[in-house]
Amino acid sequence: MTTSRAETAMNYLLLVVVCAFALGPIVVVLVTSLQPDLGGGGIAWGNYAEAWSQGSFARYLRTSALVSATVLVVALTASVLAGYAFGTMTFRGSTVVFSLVLVGIMVPTEAIVVPLFYDLRTLGLTNTLWAVAFPQMAQSIAFGSYWMRAYFRTAPRSLMEAARLDGASERRVLWSILVPVGRPAIVTMTVLVFMWTWNEFLIPLVMSPNGAYRTAPLALALFQGQHVQATSLLAAAAVLVALPVVVVYLFLQRHFIRGMLEGAVRE
């Protein structure tokens, strides 16, 4: 297709403008985070150290890591197992159960969080790792079972049958053949679940009212309330909270984009 040079130049300009729009607010935060709070020149790297200690971010980032790891381990395992059953086995009730799982992808957190809090409070389980992690596992399992089923359905049958003829058990076929081959699908799910859990706000806010399991985003919101004037400290804190997901994104961005676009396209 022939296009004029002017049009090509226009397109590059458009690319730059749209990128600037996307990056502008991020640049504002980065620049603010390095500004000395009391005016004056120079780059104040110290803001990061100060935000880190004043906001106790070491502790809250650790909580976030713990919650994310717990959710990931359980949700991934349960999703791989469920996806294997949904994707490779025919059994009665499969369609019904799978439709129920699909429902869960659409349900907003607001619809479950109210009774979750009051019921777990009755059981004395609020302010525990489980209260914060289990609801998020359930949400991730809904997506994960759907996502892994899609992979197992396309997994090479010939490979599975060959392994079976060689006497491999169902379990062995899953763990030593299908899971290694399905690494891309599993990595995609891992990064998505990590991002969702790390960034989640409502569940830890509600399920840990005393702050015992306060995650990093919550700590940031709290930090904002306490440091309304200290803009540069707040900006530094925001960077600290965003950094883990952004770093993973920079390395595995294909997985993020693919997962968020394809995962959205339901059958």
Partner: peptide
């Protein structure tokens, strides 16, 4: 694609602070 997708991966709290 990589650049314009970045806002999607930031926690909403971070976005709000920005």
């Amino acid at each position: 694609r990589t650049v314009v997708f970045v806002p999607q991966v930031l926690a909403m709290v971070v976005v709000a602070v920005a």
